[in-house]
Nucleic acid binder design. Structure first.
Lengths: 202, 202
DNA sequence: CCGCATCCGTTTCGATACTG
DNA sequence: CAGTATCGAAACGGATGCGG
């Protein structure tokens, strides 16, 4: 049964929290920032959430107009939901300025690292990269005026990279430097196509 | 006992929510945005929260480094906590773009309306306003280069306004136009000093 | 009165199992 | 695959207590 409690406060901040303040809600939004995903995609991306929770949150977000389903079974952000993007990304930047990373066995969703990667890549000469992360495939497209990441494979690509989100995080932190060679040597990552273009991404 | 659950997700967004994602946390931050407040101030501003909840949240926020207490018994935001200001204000703007106001008996905290008012006032000729809202007194200071709202009364002021936060919200929505005359006539607001300067604020 | 701590009923969360 | 059902654990919310 979806949550229906409210702060009963006319302030915009409280009203925003009535919509996206429940547990997991903003992480569901994060997972939808790069495009529509299905229920099972969200479960894989948020493995520590439970299925009834996810179902509740999606229903609430849909009821409030943050999420809709123009092409079931996929869930997508509405235009209003997409307006959360800069806010959610700012929250992430804010935390990274001070919060020590949690310890223990960690899981990083493909969307998390792709949002970070997209933010670190500058527009430049056209380049299409295919990324295979945890059984999902993504397209990173660079043009002189934009950097776009979308779900699904590109029709064709200049270079493709297969690895895990956590490994890609390390590679990106190193700007595809020496750690890339090491990962390729140990099989933690695999590249086909124009490897040098990949190195110049960051 | 303070909450200690974590999303166990190294993504910055999840880490931010580990710190300020629990219920009431961001509303406590909102209440501290204009300066240090005491426990009882926070209780008055957030009357629908419970005292143990508030104590828990303050302890958690202090432990995480968002809040500190340089001058007990007041609670203040740390520099990191103050960095949340643009994010929290953006969330409020986001909600006001689409969320219908909640119904029923509503409570608007002085800080909520003062944040909104401060955002609506442009820098201009120097002016100091004393605001008495719900038994707390505030100072609004306009200079050619800034608009600042601080807790506590000013040493001296050009004009002072006494009313309720909800009433002030209405007056500000009307840019201190006809509704001000009506409020003054009915006693819903009282002004002393340079009333015309007040009218030109917005 | 202020600044909490404690107790306790209710709601939400989270894990697991299950169904169309 | 896309959720629902169930149930114990945790968090929330209100009331009350208590030292300073």
């Amino acid at each position: 049964m979806p949550t229906s409690r409210s702060y009963q406060d006319p302030c915009g901040i409280a009203r925003a929290l009535d919509v996206v303040g429940e547990r997991w809600a903003l992480l569901v939004v994060r997972e939808l920032l790069l495009g529509g995903r299905r229920f099972s995609d969200l479960r894989r991306a948020l493995p520590r959430s439970s299925s009834n929770m996810l179902a509740d949150r999606l229903r609430e977000l849909e009821r409030h107009g943050v999420v809709h389903r123009p092409h079931p079974p996929a869930y997508e952000l509405t235009a209003w939901g997409r307006d959360l993007e800069p806010i959610v990304l700012s929250l992430g930047d804010w935390a990274l300025r001070h919060v020590p990373p949690p310890s223990g066995p960690l899981h990083l969703s493909p969307v998390s690292i792709l949002l970070f990667l997209r933010g670190a890549v500058r527009p430049g000469p056209p380049l299409t990269v295919r990324l295979d992360l945890d059984d999902t495939t993504w397209t990173l497209r660079v043009t002189p005026s934009s950097v776009v990441v979308t779900p699904g494979p590109p029709p064709s690509c200049d270079v493709s990279l297969t690895t895990t989100p956590l490994q890609l995080n390390d590679l990106a932190a190193d700007r595809f430097g020496p750690s890339l060679d090491h990962a390729l040597a140990t099989g933690a990552a695999a590249v086909s196509g124009d490897r040098d273009r990949l190195r110049t991404l960051l």
